[in-house]
Design a protein around this nucleic acid. Structure first.
Length: 316
DNA sequence: AACGCGACCTGCGAGC
DNA sequence: TGCTCGCAGGTCGCGT
């Protein structure tokens, strides 16, 4: 379930293995994994073969590799990037040629030789919600992709240009977020999950951030107090930094593994997936308050009924 | 603009 | 045992 921390773990792991290497050949084993590439498999492969990976960059949960077209010279326009979205179950793995194909191997990229580096970058995806595609790079007026990558180009992958900055991005602006949030007439969790307002937060970390901030998911955004919004952003940032720290332990593996944060999921969730189990914060002061699960936005939301009370004036 | 919903997928566990 | 069903998740696009 990759959200921002998992994608950032993948980006950090990937960059050291692929930056500066040239894609020599591409196997598309399941065209469904490149269905967002509108021009089809042949065009996808043609765009990649002979191109050199300049960097690995992230905006929210979108991850892309700006490409240098070595067959036409580095300056040949228009600039493009190989985009990856992990969806639900996507993985990017560095593998040696003799490693057996993974059960859900979808796309194989062979790379030019690197010093002691695996020859292949593989996209593995069980549920096929994720995928790869080639996208144009377009100018951006907000200073580049950001994320935690150092980004030399004032360009952003077109398919990620509608995505807002995430709370860990040094260029994230709370004032900008807060003013846009207040103009929305919706509930807090719906806003948190809107990648155009603030990015990187999925269902799990939304529930965790709301729990930490002691806020209910349906609290109206248009009257939210500044202090509550600031607290919520701080909590989202803390949750993601904790998960990032947990995932960071697998950095020197050859495998760029989205399950790197599984230890975090096992140990550290306070609300998500804990239906019926006591709220730890309430238990610490002697209150037994089982976590409640509700359907919201066609998915589960987990809250503590005591420390995350429903808004009294909310519309129900 | 906001929002609900279906589509896209597979694997797993519960229940019959 | 074998079947069906619900559920899990992120994003996009469409209808209201």
């Amino acid at each position: 379930m990759p959200e921002l921390p998992e994608v950032e773990v993948v980006r950090r792991g990937l960059v050291r293995w692929v930056r500066g290497r040239t894609i020599t050949s591409v196997d598309v084993l399941d065209p469904r994994s490149i269905r967002r590439h509108a021009l089809g498999t042949q065009d996808f492969v043609g765009n990649l073969e002979g191109a050199t990976v300049a960097d690995v960059v992230r905006r929210g949960k979108f991850l892309w590799m700006p490409l240098l077209d070595t067959t036409h010279g580095a300056a040949a326009p228009p600039p493009v990037a190989l985009m990856a979205h992990l969806g639900m179950s996507g993985q990017l793995l560095m593998q040696d040629t003799n490693a057996p194909d993974e059960k859900h191997l979808k796309v194989r990229l062979r790379l030019s030789p690197g010093d002691g580096m695996p020859e292949q970058l593989r996209f593995v995806d069980q549920r096929i919600f994720g995928g790869l595609f080639v996208t144009d790079m377009v100018p951006t007026d907000d200073g580049g992709p950001g994320g935690l990558a150092e980004s030399p180009l004032p360009l952003i992958a077109e398919e990620a240009s509608h995505i807002a900055r995430d709370p860990l991005d040094p260029a994230f602006s709370f004032e900008n977020f807060f003013s846009r949030l207040r103009k929305r007439k919706t509930g807090l969790k719906r806003a948190l999950l809107d990648q155009g307002l603030v990015s990187g937060i999925g269902n799990i970390y939304a529930d965790e951030a709301l729990w930490r901030a002691k806020l209910h998911y349906a609290k109206p955004t248009d009257k939210l107090r500044r202090a509550d919004a600031a607290g919520l952003v701080d909590c989202a940032r803390e949750v993601m930094l904790d998960a990032l720290a947990a995932g960071g332990t697998s950095f020197d593996s050859l495998y760029v593994n989205v399950n790197g944060a599984s230890g975090y999921f096992d140990r550290s969730l306070n609300a998500y997936g804990r239906e019926g189990q006591p709220c730890g914060r309430c238990a610490a002061v002697g209150i037994n308050s089982p976590i409640r699960r509700e359907q919201f936005m066609n998915r589960s939301s987990y809250t503590c009924p005591v420390c995350q009370p429903r808004p009294r004036n909310g519309r129900w």
